[in-house]
Design a protein around this nucleic acid. Structure first.
Lengths: 206, 206
DNA sequence: ATTACTATCATCCGAGTAT
DNA sequence: TATACTCGGATGATAGTAA
């Protein structure tokens, strides 16, 4: 938004005519008196402010402009953080196996900054949450590099940082996954299962 | 606010890297491709946005800038007082030590009008509140003068008056602090910990 | 295709000053 | 005192074009 209009708002010029000299305004906006004067004239010409013996007030049109920007910001910023709610389910121990491999351990540490507890939390999403899962694709994943041994190749993983029980964790999805499952796999810096109930809320962290 | 930064916000660049060419951005902002390119470079140089193979994302610093403006607007337009929500955490007893020193006791009494209870309330901000913290910098702090003993020097403090549990308290930040922590230290005229739960709402008072 | 450099033109800003 | 004019220099935007 225009700096001067914003300043006038802070001076309360949306509620009443305020008194301020062009020198003061110039100082507040770090510009010369002359330029402040010029900018005031410009806003006045656009009917965004009105003046009455050197008192200034923001007009209805000016407030509409401000409100318009404010409401856009509000929508963009206050939108609820994305979260999933689901129930803890028993996995097949696969997660435990993968996370015990030094290759993944190191790759996760490098990518996410924490050493994963050897065991994933498997979360079965509530019915209502299924559609939300698609939203993961909209986010930027962090790439956890895979690795190879003589026997086989372990593929790359996508990691989506999230918060569970106030712990910074991550949702893990193999890059080469074919079916969007309703089960989310979560890795954490420490054991989660014992500390939380069987209904878990996962806040996405971006 | 800067038009380009606002546009990027609308494109969702606060959540993820977004793809947009300089021609598109130029069209949206009604300026030439060349100028759009130039403005992007400027924002990048200020660390307000980051780029990765022509994808653009708003940085933490950029979001703080946006939040700062948004919170000011919110407060002015909705007349809502600014507040932080967080959880009480145990400190290291440092606060207790400092507040037991007659030098700080007197300086706080002089600056804020109350004798502090010897012990700070340490508040860990909720995840969603982290960015809000930047807003403290926008407020006018009250200066609590430091002092010296033979052994060492105790530095100045910034105090931000606030209200917790209907008590006039203050958020304390050492002037020479290097890292914006997500923990707020609060001093109060009387013991707070026992009276409140572990979720606390701190209303800024200005 | 894209980004971004250079040169030129336009707009903005500050100093001096009239009112 | 105050606001706001003119004018020269600084900053910003566009067109052409290289990479």
């Amino acid at each position: 938004m225009d700096n001067l209009l914003f300043l006038l708002l802070r001076l309360g010029a949306h509620k009443k005519f305020v008194q301020s000299t062009t020198i003061e305004i110039g100082n507040l906006l770090k510009m010369s008196q002359q330029n402040a004067s010029r900018k005031i004239l410009l806003l006045e010409k656009e009917n965004l402010i009105e003046r009455k013996n050197n008192l200034i007030k923001i007009t209805k049109k000016g407030m509409e402009l401000i409100l318009q920007e404010y409401l856009q910001l509000k929508q963009l910023i206050e939108c609820e953080t994305l979260f999933f709610v689901g129930a803890v389910v028993e996995g097949l121990g696969e997660g435990k196996y993968y996370l015990s491999l030094p290759g993944y351990k190191k790759a996760i540490k490098d990518a996410l900054g924490f050493e994963p507890y050897p065991g994933t939390l498997n979360l079965k999403l509530d019915e209502k949450e299924h559609l939300k899962r698609a939203y993961l694709k909209e986010l930027d994943p962090i790439l956890v590099k895979g690795f190879s041994t003589k026997e086989r190749t372990f593929g790359d993983l996508f990691a989506y940082p999230c918060v569970v029980d106030n712990l910074k964790c991550a949702i893990i999805v193999p890059v080469r996954t074919h079916h969007g499952t309703e089960i989310l796999e979560i890795i954490a810096p420490s054991e989660l299962k014992k500390k939380i109930g069987d209904k878990v809320r996962v806040e996405l962290d971006f």
